[in-house]
C-alpha cells in the first residue's frame, strides 16, 4: 500500500486536486491499485470538495481517496499517516510553510509544481515533480522499489532543510525590518 497525504485546505485557491485524482486513475489503468490519497484539511469550499468526489467517482477511484475534513496539526497525525508520503503543492521551486514543516517533521515530502508556466530548475531532483507525468513516474518508482525510493526522497528532503533556517545575515535583515529605526547589527539573539 502506498499512502499519499495532501495537507491543504480544500479551497478554490488550492484547487490542484484534480491532477491527483487523474493520476490515481492513470495508475489504476496501469494495474497499480494500492495507492491511497488522504486529503488533510478543512473543507472551505463544498464545491471544490464535491468536484473531487465527483471526479473520483467518474474515474472509478472513489475507494482510493479519503478526507479528514478538518485541519490537523502535523504533530498530531497518526503514525500510519506520518509514515506515508506527503505531496506538497509548490509554485515552481517555491515551497510554502506546509512543505517546510513537513520536511522539518521528517516526513517523506514530494513537491508537485502547480504552475506549469514556470521554468523548472530542479528537474533532476527526485522530490521535485514539475509535471503530472513526473509525479506519476515517481509513484510508480515507489510502487516498484519503495525502500530505495523512500531513501532517496528522504535524502533529498534533508538537503533542503538548511535552506529554511536563517543565517546571521538574514537574521540581521529581518531585524532591520522589525526595527527600522535602530542600529541592530549587534543585537541578534
Amino acid at each position: 500500500m502506498i499512502n499519499l497525504n495532501v495537507i491543504s485546505r480544500i479551497a478554490e485557491d488550492k484547487n490542484y486536486f484534480p491532477d491527483l485524482i487523474k493520476i490515481l486513475h492513470l495508475l489504476k489503468n496501469k494495474g497499480i491499485t494500492d495507492v491511497q490519497i488522504l486529503f488533510i484539511g478543512t473543507v472551505y469550499s463544498p464545491k471544490v470538495y464535491q468536484n473531487i468526489m465527483d471526479m473520483a467517482s467518474r474515474l472509478n477511484v472513489s475507494s482510493n481517496i479519503a478526507f479528514t475534513e478538518k485541519s490537523i496539526p502535523m504533530s498530531e497525525l497518526s503514525d500510519e499517516i506520518k509514515n506515508g508520503y506527503f505531496i506538497n503543492f509548490t509554485i515552481g521551486e517555491f515551497t510554502g510553510f506546509s512543505g517546510l514543516e513537513s520536511i522539518k517533521n521528517g516526513f517523506k515530502t514530494i513537491f508537485y509544481n502547480i504552475d506549469k508556466s514556470l521554468k523548472n530548475e530542479c528537474d533532476n531532483v527526485i522530490a521535485y515533480c514539475h509535471t503530472r507525468d513526473k509525479l506519476m513516474d515517481l509513484i510508480i518508482n515507489i510502487s516498484q522499489n519503495q525502500a530505495l525510493t523512500s531513501e532517496e526522497i528522504t535524502a533529498c528532503n534533508q538537503k533542503m532543510l538548511n535552506r529554511f533556517i536563517l543565517n546571521s545575515a538574514m537574521k540581521r535583515e529581518l531585524l532591520a525590518m522589525m526595527l527600522p529605526k535602530s542600529n541592530h547589527s549587534d543585537k541578534l539573539a
Partner: peptide
C-alpha cells in the same frame, strides 16, 4: 519592494 524567504526559527 523587497524579498525575504520563508523561514523556520531554530
Amino acid at each position: 519592494r523587497g524579498l525575504f524567504p520563508l523561514f523556520l526559527n531554530d
